[in-house]
């Protein structure tokens, strides 16, 4: 049977991809952020997951307002990275796992999560930056990937409670997969940031640190926040934290924090990193 070996959460800011492309990881501005990742890469080298389920939000590449699913999942053989409007060099396609995709779809819909099914999906920095941070040191990506996309563009956004429950359903779906594969669940985005309005540049360190702590030991409390609470406390883009809650919900075993990092600012964001082990 499939096994969920752990969960990882990281911010997914476009500027990180640019810093990687320009080899700026050891610049004073970037160092405190990138120095958080070697322990996570070491853990990945040791545990060697076969598949990464990557929970992220599209920022207007694959989805537009004409058709905006609340939750969507990839069922493609590979996922293309495309120009998001800034003319950056695109990354090679990310391999998928269609057999597991369809298993997850069957299981989630049976579990009353009626997710949009995408046999083609272009992935933006929300997906690609975490992949680069976690496996960018490898010549060839050692995992197959399945994107799970969440609407954080068009309000109403799904509630944190709903997202946490989706995570639980995702966990059940993965663990009922009959193949012997090791799965890591990656939740991306956050932590506090606000790009738009006169309040642009809002960051809330105290709230971010509380979230980083509570998501390990008491995710139910965080799942009780409303989206309005998250906007108020963590900025207009702060609700991306719901993707961390999906990740956390999927970990149904004994959860232990192995590593975390937090740094302000990366671009306009309080950048968080978390590695959780999910023991049987």
């Amino acid at each position: 049977m499939a096994k969920i070996i752990g969960g990882i959460s990281t911010s997914h800011i476009p500027a990180i991809g640019i810093a990687i492309a320009n080899g700026m990881q050891q610049d004073p501005y970037w160092k405190p952020f990138f120095d958080g990742f070697p322990p996570v890469r070491k853990w990945l080298d040791e545990t060697r997951p076969d598949i990464a389920i990557v929970i992220y939000n599209d920022h207007g590449l694959n989805f537009f307002l004409n058709k905006m699913p609340t939750f969507a999942i990839g069922a493609a053989a590979e996922y293309r990275n495309e120009d998001e409007g800034w003319g950056l060099k695109t990354l090679p396609p990310f391999p998928g796992d269609q057999q597991l995709s369809w298993h997850l779809i069957e299981s989630l819909v049976n579990d009353e999560f009626d997710i949009a099914i995408c046999q083609e999906m272009a992935v933006d920095h929300g997906f690609t930056v975490p992949m680069q941070l976690l496996w960018g040191d490898k010549e060839k990506l050692p995992v197959r990937t399945i994107p799970l996309e969440v609407n954080t563009v068009q309000h109403p956004l799904p509630t944190p409670a709903r997202c946490y429950k989706l995570g639980k359903a995702l966990g059940r779906a993965i663990e009922s997969y009959p193949e012997n594969v090791k799965v890591v669940v990656v939740g991306t985005g956050g932590l506090s940031h606000q790009l738009d309005g006169q309040r642009a540049g809002f960051i809330n360190k105290e709230f971010d640190l509380m979230c980083l702590d509570k998501i390990v030991s008491d995710p139910e409390t965080l799942a009780r926040y409303t989206i309005h609470d998250l906007v108020l406390k963590a900025g207009t883009q702060g609700p991306e934290f719901i993707q961390w809650l999906i990740m956390r919900g999927a970990l149904t075993g004994k959860v232990r924090k192995l590593h975390s990092n937090y740094h302000i600012p990366i671009s306009n964001t309080g950048a968080g990193l978390l590695l959780l082990e999910n023991a049987a």
Binding site: F64, L65, V153, Q154, H155, P156, G197, Q198, R199, V231
Partner: peptide, 28 residues
């Protein structure tokens, strides 16, 4: 409905249905 209302959050406009209707052409 618990619809987010940004009136009590200074300097913030939530992109809700009203904004989306108004802004479709620009966003497109």
């Amino acid at each position: 409905t618990g619809r987010p209302n940004s009136d009590d959050i200074p300097g913030t406009t939530l992109f809700d249905g009203r904004q989306s209707l108004k802004g479709y052409a620009l966003n497109h």
